[in-house]
Write a protein that binds this DNA or RNA. Structure first.
Lengths: 221, 221
DNA sequence: TCAATAGTGTCTCTAAGACATTATGTT
DNA sequence: AACATAATGTCTTAGAGACACTATTGA
């Protein structure tokens, strides 16, 4: 039986400069050595508990971080996507606040806007498109974008994150109604963020229950 | 490097007797020979164009059919799920009208209700659960359940299919408004289905554009 | 003529968005 | 005091569900 090449790839998504960005690394080895590409690598059957663990290991190795959210996206396959032979990549996407990427030690990543990418090897452009689509779709009815925010944030900041991900302005009153409905935040008592000559905003943190599971809405935003 | 076992599994879903059912086959070979399990098999790198093609080949071989809808579900993996070693299964689900299964030649499948299954080998029970969840979720806002209906059907029949999948009664007026909004059906002119001592119902068929892509709703049913 | 379901018109109630108002900080 | 943004109250409008009424067949 012809051997199948088994790999994982990870689309690390973050927001910087009010823009959705993805982490790319310069490939060290052939094929496509020297080109920007998604962090990825072979599945190590002798050490990985499953492909989720493979993806975590790859991110830790290449970006030096442990992302707060990691989900499987799809499995891409076929004889033509990798010049080494019939290959299969279990694509994942991860969400992470950009400070964590920038503070990581030994990180080799470069952040680039998802909608202004250079030509990429393999089917990585398509995988990034799928990741952005999945994020956009799930953000319509869930607390998913919270994983792009830091430990604490204000409601206006969170709304801005949703707007960047969804690509549209949101109604402030409706947004706050929905956030309340999802019941995922708790105010950090007595903590406010002052950002100029105006009333400061209440800081919030994710409830611990919402750090491990997504909160969903019956009807979208 | 330790070899990874690469397989595909398919959850074939259909509705019979007003119940969501899945197709199981009696395994011919070890492990678990003789037990009911999902149709599945190895990826054949020398002949399959990708894992979608692997899944289609498996369904054609075991159930003798070409399903109108087939989608990738998730990739399950790890050292413990298959006694033969570290394995990876790209799980798919397919939707098909039950007449197609029952009329298939050389089909080895048995239809069983998804919520009254016997103990199954591997992680097949979990895969079937994921498939039913995915179908239920997508059915809330798309035309997906149409692939469980035959070539022509009445609106009351389609509403019944949605109700079985979603597990709840639907409002007739709202359902018809949504079907109109999705703009996926065209009436079969002059064709009605009489089912007793009452007004017969108009027959509809999927528009050709809706046979290849899903129609989506802004807000769910 | 009655029974039964198909199909449609319309009213009510809920929820989303628009707009206005109040709150609270900095300059 | 002026100003800018946070936060919230309220009105308008759109959509979902409830209900009722008409349509059309077989018994």
């Amino acid at each position: 039986m012809v051997e199948v090449i088994c790999t994982v790839d990870v689309v690390l998504l973050t927001i910087r400069d009010d823009t959705l960005m993805t982490a790319l690394i310069e490939r060290e080895h052939a094929p496509f050595a020297g080109q920007y590409a998604l962090p990825g690598g072979y599945i190590h059957a002798e050490e990985d508990a499953d492909v989720h663990a493979s993806a975590m290991r790859v991110i830790a190795g290449k970006a030096g971080i442990v992302p707060p959210y990691l989900e499987q996206l799809a499995t891409l396959s076929g004889p033509g996507r990798d010049p080494r032979g019939w290959s299969l990549s279990i694509a994942h996407y991860a969400l992470v606040p950009c400070e964590i990427i920038e503070n990581a030690v030994g990180s080799q990543v470069h952040l680039l806007p998802v909608d202004r990418l250079p030509a990429l090897p393999f089917d990585h452009a398509r995988i990034i498109g799928m990741a952005a689509d999945r994020l956009r779709n799930k953000s319509q009815y869930s607390s998913l974008p919270c994983f792009l925010a830091g430990d604490t944030f204000t409601l206006p900041q969170l709304q801005r994150i949703y707007e960047i991900v969804l690509g549209e302005k949101l109604n402030k009153v409706s947004f706050r109604r929905k956030v309340t409905e999802m019941d995922m935040l708790e105010p950090v008592e007595g903590c406010f963020e002052s950002a100029g000559a105006h009333r400061p905003a209440q800081l919030y943190a994710l409830k611990s229950s919402s750090r491990s599971k997504l909160m969903l809405l019956e009807r979208g935003l």
